[in-house]
Design a binder for these strands. Structure first.
Lengths: 340, 340
DNA sequence: GTGAAAGCGCTAACAC
DNA sequence: GTGTTAGCGCTTTCAC
């Protein structure tokens, strides 16, 4: 029962003022690097802070300034999947870099259950953060609704349709999918299938649409395997399914590199050569792409840039220099490697 | 310049009280689900809250309760690597599950630069969180020091030596490495090398020690390839290096599954068969292990459980029911598959 | 350049 | 059961 913490109560700004023989006001000015403070006062305060072991209370400060100095990155994912998605990591890096530069603290929050949803809404409403960046929101997300309700500065990565007048940044999944499928066609493939994943969100849906558009009349719905997850296993299972239906398949567009990797392993085991017998393309340009043999042709997502822009957007909204509703679509790039 | 947010100032608890014709005290009681409030008052308050659009200020609340209701998960990593580490994701899941149950908000914070370090320390000192779980801290981390200084309830995953009297939860990397290496020896391998990674932290260092111990007299320092990262590429490069030095190698212990995967690809390309010509074992039991062909024998880390215990520890410390310094080492399990 | 004092929005102790 | 009131620790006018 010797709790050190309970023993000495936290020093307050008043303690510092007393110790330094100055007023709270002056101490506050020094703490905030404001002008109109004498050099002597500055030193006295710093010294006093050290002596009494003062640490400023965020709560008290935030109560009067109405600022927390923090921004949330909200990730909507069944948590197991976070690991597999290479983009999230890069978005995180971009976001953190920009916010760090602006001296804002990034806090990442995972939403994984109904209970999480409620708690996160409370957290956001409470004012713990000055803004939010939202990843992979689905339609009708409680968090999305809450953000709109409380008017929290926010930017969505991807473009959920019910955040219509919100700020967002996205890539054109449809166009990218169409482009890479077109080149599959251009290299002479005739029977082209797709391993479609994540059809419950816009990214997955748009990739399928792009694929369909690229094929035009040649599109055969039977050659689309569907799986909820963008995973290696989805690729394995989907590819088996496709080969069974259409052993003469000579091209596949996988909704992500992980899916493509699964597919390529199945193809290899079935004795088919890539790209000789069949061309394979993926999406993401993640670590998987280079691990494939031959390396995978794929679509490069500017994930880091996505994160950076989202952060800048939110910072702008917080500063009030930028309007809330603003959409931006970043270009993608097809990376042509050996697999097709 | 039509900022909706600026227009209507946030409703306060007083507004709710006025609207409901009650006092602040009663409103506060309803908000906190306290007893001794009449049903009518309850309803009146809830209705008033709805009408004035009240949301409670976390800052004001936290100022008086000295609680934030949030716990930080601090991840010390060059951010690119977060993606590759399968354990972090599982620790995150375990932590989030336990905290969610206790209605605490988990906020994940990445520390990626000196500037991050400073800001995070400020964040922790400010009282934004009631406790912290710290991952992969190195010796002499500013955050570790700050946590000790301010007496923040905390639990370290892994065991950095300078948090000597702090609470921690870890696995016995040394014993696990020794065990899996021993079985490599037991299956008749004579020339065994190691792909060592992350030697700047206890986990990496301990795995190398366990390896050394298992080999005893047979240990040959020349057969240890070193790389800072637990990555696929590290495995590729390390394996090439080892094969050049010792073409007759017949066993390899890789410091992680990702490293092992890189190694196996090199072995395959060099025309060696696994486990025929050479046995390979890894560490982590991550997704990589099953992607290998043949599937990888490895050490299973109870990552999720690690996260759960850490969260429970911190909750206990916050509640004051548990002493600060408490260490726990969880057992690991060797998973024997086809690669050795 | 510095001090005094008025809150920020909330909880909790105490009256009634 | 409910109202009243005294702070929590800080910033920010406004005097001086």
């Amino acid at each position: 029962m010797t709790d050190v913490r309970a023993a000495r109560p936290r020093a307050t700004i008043q303690d510092v003022a007393d110790e330094a023989g100055l007023s709270r006001g002056t101490v506050s000015r020094v703490l905030n690097d404001e002008p109109y403070v004498s050099a002597e006062a500055r030193d006295a305060v710093r010294e006093a802070v050290r002596r009494v072991g003062y640490v400023r209370s965020a709560a008290a400060r935030s109560l009067v300034t109405r600022r927390s100095g923090a921004v949330a990155l909200i990730v909507h994912e069944p948590s197991v999947q976070v690991l597999d998605d290479p983009n999230i990591g890069n978005i995180l890096i971009g976001t953190n870099a920009v916010l760090s530069e602006a001296d804002q603290q990034l806090v990442t929050i995972m939403v994984d259950s109904a209970r999480d949803n409620e708690r996160v809404v409370e957290y956001l409403r409470g004012g713990f953060v000055d803004g939010a960046i939202v990843l992979s929101a689905r339609d009708g997300d409680p968090v999305t609704r809450a953000i709109a309700e409380i008017g929290l500065p926010a930017c969505f990565v991807g473009h959920p349709s019910d955040a219509a007048n919100a700020s967002y940044i996205a890539i054109d999944n449809r166009a990218a999918a169409e482009e890479i499928t077109r080149r599959l066609v251009a290299t002479g493939r005739r029977r082209i299938g797709m391993l479609a994943s994540g059809l419950d969100r816009d990214s997955g849906q748009d990739r399928l649409e792009g694929f369909t558009a690229a094929l035009g009349d040649r599109f055969d719905p039977a050659l689309v395997a569907r799986d909820p997850l963008f995973s290696y296993t989805a690729g394995v299972e989907g590819m088996r399914e496709l080969l069974e239906k259409a052993p003469d398949l000579d091209g596949v567009f996988a909704a992500s590199d992980a899916v493509a990797a699964g597919a390529m392993d199945v193809l290899q085991r079935s004795g088919r050569s890539v790209p000789g017998d069949i061309g394979v393309v993926g999406f993401d340009d993640s670590a998987w792409a280079l691990r494939c043999d031959p390396p995978l042709s794929t679509v490069r997502q500017p994930a880091r840039t996505l994160g950076e822009h989202a952060a800048q957007q939110v910072l702008g909204q917080i500063a009030g220099t930028v309007t809330g509703s603003h959409g931006l679509v970043l270009p993608t790039e097809v990376v042509w490697r050996g697999s097709a």
